[in-house]
Each structure stands twice: as C-alpha cells, then as structure tokens.
C-alpha cells in the first residue's frame, strides 16, 4: 500500500489529534447498483442513441493502443459511425482494452471502468485479452479479461487491423441495439465474483471495493 493511503494522524486547528483513514474517509464505499432498463419503447430509442454515440475512453492499456489512433484519420474516420474519443472516464461509454493487460494496469483499468457511468461497454482488443495471447504464461499479465470485467465484444488478432476494430464497433452497436449491452448491470449483479477475481491477482488492494 502506498504510504499516502495508510492511516495518518493530523493535528486539527484546535490542536487536537485527528486520525485520518484516507481510503475510508476520502472514498465512497457504496456498492454499485443495478439499473434495470426502463420502459421497452423508451429503452429501444435510448439504445439506438447509445449505439450511435459511442464515446471511447482515451486510455490505451497495451500495445493495441497504437491501432486505435488511425481510426480518427481520414482513411478510417470512425467519426462517421458516431464514434468519438473522450478524455475522461466520467463521460466515456466504451472502454477499449487494447491488448495485453499487466496486473498493474488491470488495477487502473478496474478503477477507470468503475468510474464510467452505466450503461458502459467493454471491447477486448487482441488475443491477449482473450486468452493471454503471446503472454499466456507470463507471471505478470492476465489471461482472460472476462474474469475481471464484463466484456461485450472481443476482437481477435495480434494485432487486429483498424478495419477489424471498426467491425468490432459495428458488432457492439448491434449488441447495444438488441438490448444486450448490459455489462454494467452484470458487473453489479456479480460484483462479488468479479471482485474476488480482481483481488486474487491485485495483491496490494489499497482502494475501496468500488471506485465511484
């Protein structure tokens, strides 16, 4: 655990000692909620909008990040499909796990995923997210992304070309439109299982169970 997250004692302006437990005091420890879909008609419309406004979080977790950049260029131009990049997890709705995921990055990925708002979608990019790929026997990279986060779409390949990425987004759109993009709710429902898996590999767990 980082030194800064350990308990510390400070002196208040009145001169009294005050114990601070940063993880408890500074982070909300509420559990995630399941947000059931509303009225089917409205939900259908909403899903159409969600599918056509995919805001991708600009967080490259591995080598595949380099494949995401060309999507914005004139050659591939993902904007025309309603795909845009967003620099903050609060506003993004799609999280592309781009390639191998080391344990250290996984911790950040979990944290970031949890900061995104429901509904949110995960795209596993490249073989590494499926079964570990060429890092399958590494002491430090995970093998199966879906044990840690609910994945909506996998895109196989090492590395997949941008075209495959676009294809993956189209698949994601279909899933969303069919109302199957309920990863966030699944995560909330099976929260304990996901947490157990995460905690199994992330050894120094110095954050609350859910990062709001």
């Amino acid at each position: 655990m980082k030194e800064d997250f350990k308990k510390r004692t400070v002196i208040t302006p009145e001169g009294k000692p005050l114990e601070i437990d940063p993880v408890k005091d500074y982070f909300s420890d509420a559990r995630p909620k399941v947000h059931k879909p509303a009225n089917p008609v409205i939900e259908k419309f909403a899903n159409w909008a969600r599918a056509n406004s995919l805001w991708v979080l600009g967080f490259g977790t591995g080598c595949g990040a380099i494949e995401m950049r060309p999507l914005m260029t004139p050659r591939f131009d993902a904007y025309r499909y309603g795909i845009q990049w967003r620099p903050t997890p609060r506003q993004a709705s799609v999280f592309v796990i781009s390639g191998y995921l080391s344990v250290k990055t996984l911790k950040r990925v979990v944290r970031t995923y949890e900061q995104m708002q429901n509904p949110k979608f995960v795209v596993g990019l490249g073989s590494c997210t499926i079964n570990g790929g060429m890092y399958w026997d590494s002491y430090n990279t995970i093998n199966r992304l879906d044990h840690y986060l609910p994945v909506d779409v996998y895109i196989a390949g090492c590395m997949p070309r941008p075209e495959s990425l676009l294809h993956g987004f189209e698949e994601l759109k279909k899933i969303i439109k069919e109302g199957r993009g309920e990863g966030a709710n699944k995560y909330a429902e099976e929260f304990d299982w996901y947490k157990a898996n995460q905690k199994k590999v992330i050894k120094d767990w110095d954050m609350p169970d859910y990062n709001w």
Binding site: N131, G132, D137, S138, Y139, T141, R144
Partner: peptide, 22 residues
Amino acid sequence: PYRRDFDTKKYSEDTYFPRPGR
C-alpha cells in the same frame, strides 16, 4: 520472478484463469 527457479508458467496457470482449450 526473474530468478530461474521461479516457474512463471505454473504461476500463471495458478493465478490467471487460463482459458481452457488453448
């Protein structure tokens, strides 16, 4: 992990939920 008596494959299999059929 860089010591040669550390078995990284075994560690990975024990820890990282290997996908069956690989």
